[in-house]
Every structure is written in structure tokens, then in C-alpha cells.
Design a protein around this nucleic acid. Structure first.
Lengths: 135, 135
DNA sequence: CAGAATCCTGTGGGATACTG
DNA sequence: CAGTATCCCACAGGATTCTG
């Protein structure tokens, strides 16, 4: 595969275009990367590997994430079909988030990434310090 | 594996600490994600799959990226040990970028991601439109 | 409990111009 | 050719407050 180029001109039609959104990104790789390339998406997906989680449970699980970003990111993930949101109309409302089939299908590549990160983190840190030698 | 938590307190020592950098991120997953999670790193690495490339060749390959960002990102990738930069002190200077061993070791997970993106992009776009039904 | 709204900041990243 | 320097803006994302 060659590098994913970006046609500078606006694409005539999208994969499943309907003209609704401004444009679904023409390049699949870029589109997906732009989505899950943010600070939290992958972390959230990984947290949901455990199974279904409620909003605050997720919030605790990630430790440091504003409720704002958690909410936003979950919406994007839901829109893209990675996670399913289920609202139980009870007195204190309960909302559960769980991975969809698409979400689950994403786990293997994600796992590969996580494992690589674990395996090579030290090496990266070493390289980083080596390049930063002041004198 | 549970979700990668962030200890709110500053870590006492890093994987290969030397006190040089402010801190190498304590969580490997987050650290790696923060690095390659930007707009260009993965694209550049993927472009270098072809083999050695010169600066402008990379620039053309990616199509739309400012020289600024290309330069910056390459430096980060070099610092982290993903790519090797070789300068040939000729009259018009020539600089070649190529993947290091570490860089190559990263290709399988990257490939997995790319293939997943290709395979499921349509599905994502469909979900996206389905959720966006105005009426 | 699960968010939406509002406000504010840091910085990722583009454009342009200059240099060796 | 291969950058660096400068300027500038959009937006990711945090903090806080309000609601059903």
C-alpha cells in the first residue's frame, strides 16, 4: 500500500454518502485515525473491554478525565458505532455503556497496539534520553 | 488488563529515568498514544514502510502536510527512535529518513490498525449517518 | 447519577518568509 | 534541498456550574 494521499479537491461522493455530514473523510485510514486519535477514545474502548460500565464507573476507571470529555467522547464513539448506550429510566438515572460488535472487532488491533506499547516503552524512553544529551 | 490509570502524584522514577526530561509518562500506553496519536506520526511511519525517503519525497507522499509539521513530527519520531535521519553533506543537502528496528517492529500493529480501518470504514460511516437522522 | 452549558486556556497545526 | 522562525487561529480539553 502506498501512503494515504489526500485529494485536495472536495470528493464528489462518500462511501455511503447522503450529503448529511459536511463530509465523511475520503481516506479510511485518516478518518479512523482522526476519530480514535484523540486523547481518550482508545483508553475508553480499552476500559470497556472489561464489559459493561456505567458513566461514573468509566469516569473512575480512567482516573483523570473531565466528565465533559468523557461525555463527548462517548457520544462520538456511539455515533461511530463502537459503543452502545443504554438508558434505564429509573429515579436516579442509570446509563450503561458497552461495546458493540464493531467495537469488539476493534479490540484485536487495539490489543496489538497496547502490547507493543508495553513491550517497547522502555526502549522509547531510552532513545528519548539518548537524543536529549545536553552536552 | 485493567484500564491504564493515571496516578495523580508525580512519579518518583521513570523506566529508565535520568531526571532529564520533565517526566517520561508513567503509563506506557498513554505515553505511546500521546506520541503517535497526533495527526501525522502514523501516516509518516506508514509512508516510510516503502523504504527510505527524502524530506521532500515524504512531503509529496503525504500530500497535505506543512513542511513545518513534517519537520517537527520527524524530529519527535527520531527522538523516540522510530526513524533514523541521515544527512549527506552535499551541495544541495540531502537528508534521508528510514525506519529503525524499533520502527519496523511497530509496523505489524500499525498494519493491523490500517487493515481494520479499511475493512470497517464503510460500517462506521453508515452508523454515523444513522445516528444523525435529522427527523 | 448522568449529563448539558458556559467559560477559558494550551497547543496542534497551517501559512508565509527567511536561511545555509 | 531541507529545513527554521514567526505569526496566527481553531479547537481539544479542563473547571465549574446547572438540571432532570
Amino acid at each position: 500500500m502506498t501512503a494515504p494521499q489526500m485529494p485536495p479537491e472536495p470528493p464528489p461522493a462518500m462511501p455511503g454518502d447522503a450529503g448529511t455530514s459536511p463530509f465523511d473523510h475520503p481516506c479510511p485510514i485518516r478518518d479512523v485515525l482522526n476519530r480514535i486519535g484523540d486523547q481518550w477514545s482508545l483508553l475508553i474502548l480499552q476500559a470497556l473491554t472489561q464489559g459493561t460500565l456505567r458513566f461514573n464507573a468509566l469516569h473512575r476507571e480512567l482516573g483523570d478525565i473531565s466528565r465533559q470529555m468523557l461525555s463527548r467522547t462517548l457520544k462520538k464513539l456511539e455515533a461511530d458505532g463502537f459503543v452502545q448506550r443504554t438508558l434505564y429510566p429509573e429515579v436516579p438515572p442509570r446509563v450503561e455503556y458497552t461495546l458493540t460488535a464493531l467495537g469488539h472487532s476493534f479490540l484485536p488491533p487495539l490489543q496489538a497496539l497496547v502490547e507493543w506499547a508495553d513491550a517497547h516503552h522502555l526502549e522509547i524512553c531510552q532513545s528519548r534520553r539518548r537524543m536529549a544529551t545536553p552536552a
